[in-house]
Amino acid sequence: MKTRTLLLSALLSTSALAADADIWIRLPGHAAFASVLRWEDQADGVKVAPFELMRTPISNGDFLRFVLHDPAWQRGRVPAVFAESRYLEHWHGPVQLGPGVRGTQPVTRVSWFAADAYCRAQGARLPTWAEWEYAAAADAEREDARSDPAWREAILAWYSRPSNTPLPDIAQGTATVHGIHDLNGLVWEWVEDHAAMLVSADNREQGDPDVMQFCGAGALSTDDRENYAVLMRIAMLSSLQAADVTGNLGFRCARSIEGARP
């Protein structure tokens, strides 16, 4: 058992070292990124400090190595508070992908807690929504392709693809100008602050237990009606609980750069 653990961690650390440059891409960030979420307190745009983002989403193979290393995250062992019952249910077994599930496909049916634990185990974290949206605004030629109707059409065409077809492998399409794959067109991805995006307009009324109440100011407006492709993603992520899983929701990790300023 001990030898196996040792071997496994040796294996994990060598592959991590060898492939570091393949895994992480440094993004320059933005002093005033125009998020689709126009927060009252950030009317001039969101500051996105330079950061590192994974080149591709986490694959089934990556996640299998993780649950072998940390059995607490195996299907059947993970407590319900961290992942609902459909967690990794498409795998053949707790540590077996099985027929029809490729190691090169993006992992899905993982909860926010599991994604968060995976990233922390890599010394990383989930990207924030602002970081993700900024990275995903790029296409192969432009840092911000969002005003191009063709860019929007491509995303909407992806949304309309039936979800009962098997997921393609990661990194099959064209990378963005930053060198990042699959931000659009493959799976949806968890972000660190998925629960914080649609905290509704400030509401200090008392008495109604069904109305979400907030401290401080900071209303949200979404004045970019054209960009409902991105708004749909925000609505979907916001509607989820952190223990939820879905068949087309995966994740990738991000890392802060010490001392980096937008």
Binding site: W39, D41, Q42, V81, W112, F113, D116, R120, R125, E192, D193, A195, A196, M197, V199, D202, M212, Q213, F214, C215, G216, A217, G218, Q241, A242
Partner: peptide, 27 residues
């Protein structure tokens, strides 16, 4: 900070840091 995020997720508390250092949060 990472534990705050996890604890909030488990409790179902939603919060967001504002540019001025305040927070929006459910109570």
């Amino acid at each position: 900070a990472a534990s705050v995020r996890r604890l909030a997720a488990a409790l179902g508390v939603r919060y967001r840091a504002l540019a001025d250092g305040e927070f929006n949060h459910t109570s």
